[in-house]
């Protein structure tokens, strides 16, 4: 099969199939009235089932604010976010998140297993069942048998795997990731990226990843949304067309990868 060797300008709508996450006319900001500081202006985005969307933009553009809006942590100033047809008014059972500061999102007084099982305990899942699910998720991220360790006994990369396992065990439909690999070394970063690719393929989770790293955004995503300017708006959308399988060497050598990279970097330099 000869794949089309050029990248497409993508759409903010889904290509086909069902919409899972629907971001409609969302503006984000802090403060009220005259003092309002607008961070993000009128974002529209639809994400389909099992889709992987990256949102890339320069540091300080408001990516984290956007992610807080999508996760229900911070209500949008205007517009709505809905998941599976339901408008969210706060944190939602269909949405899980992995933050940049893994070491600060894991609780040092709990073992790895307890950390992963903790959200389930909150949902009233019984001890046996939540331990089973925690063990399962730890296995999925390559940490089987490490449940009795404490987070501080693990490396940064392993801690971030635990945070991912916690999100998986929660059985949410959408997984939001905020610069999840920013604080680990390069090799660990590649391992974690491939872990996420494989998890998406194996489990069919829908992932929205926010990052300032252009390579990472392109490598992982089906669609890359580029945001820039103040307040932030969408300045470009690119469809990568890599399918569900990636390879750190081959994919990054792919002309489409190079095209997308050049196009995004040029666009961001202008901003």
């Amino acid at each position: 099969m000869t794949a089309p060797q050029s990248i497409h300008t993508g759409s903010l709508d889904v290509l086909g199939g069902e919409v899972l996450l629907d971001v409609s006319h969302v503006s984000m900001g802090y403060g009220d009235g005259e003092h309002e500081k607008r961070i993000l202006e009128d974002l529209n985005l639809k994400v389909g089932h099992s889709e992987f969307v990256s949102i890339v933009g320069p540091s300080g553009v408001g990516k984290t604010t956007l992610l807080r809006g999508l996760s229900g942590l911070l209500p949008p100033k205007r517009g709505t976010v809905s998941v599976a047809g339901q408008t969210i008014t706060g944190p939602h059972p269909d949405i899980a998140a992995v933050f940049q500061d893994y070491s600060r999102s894991l609780m040092p007084w709990m073992t790895t297993r307890e950390n992963v099982a903790f959200p389930l305990q909150g949902q009233g899942v019984g001890r046996r069942e939540r331990n089973r699910r925690a063990e399962e998720s730890l296995e999925e991220v390559g940490l089987s048998g490490q449940g009795d360790k404490y987070p501080w006994e693990m490396s940064g990369g392993m801690q971030q795997r635990v945070a991912i396992a916690r999100a998986l065990a929660y059985h949410a439909k959408v997984l939001l990731m905020d610069e999840p690999f920013a604080s680990v070394d390069a090799q660990t970063r590649f391992d974690l990226e491939d872990l996420v690719v494989n998890l998406r393929e194996a489990l069919g989770v829908t992932i929205v990843l926010v990052t300032h790293d252009v390579d990472e955004a392109i490598y992982l995503a089906d669609r890359v949304i580029v945001i820039a300017e103040k307040p932030a708006t969408v300045v470009d959308v690119i469809e990568t067309g890599f399918g569900t399988v990636r390879d750190q060497v081959d994919t990054k050598a792919d002309p489409r990868f190079q095209d997308a990279r050049g196009r995004i970097l040029t666009r961001l330099r202008k901003a």
Binding site: L73, G90, A96, A97, F99, R104, M107, F118, G122
Partner: peptide, 27 residues
């Protein structure tokens, strides 16, 4: 209480009592 942990607790909708016992108290 660490803001990272506070966010995590909200995302996963940890009930008040469990939060008190397993998060706030140990922290």
């Amino acid at each position: 209480l660490d803001p990272g942990i506070a966010d995590t607790v909200r995302i996963y909708r940890i009930p008040r009592l469990l939060w008190f016992r397993r998060v706030l108290l140990p922290s």
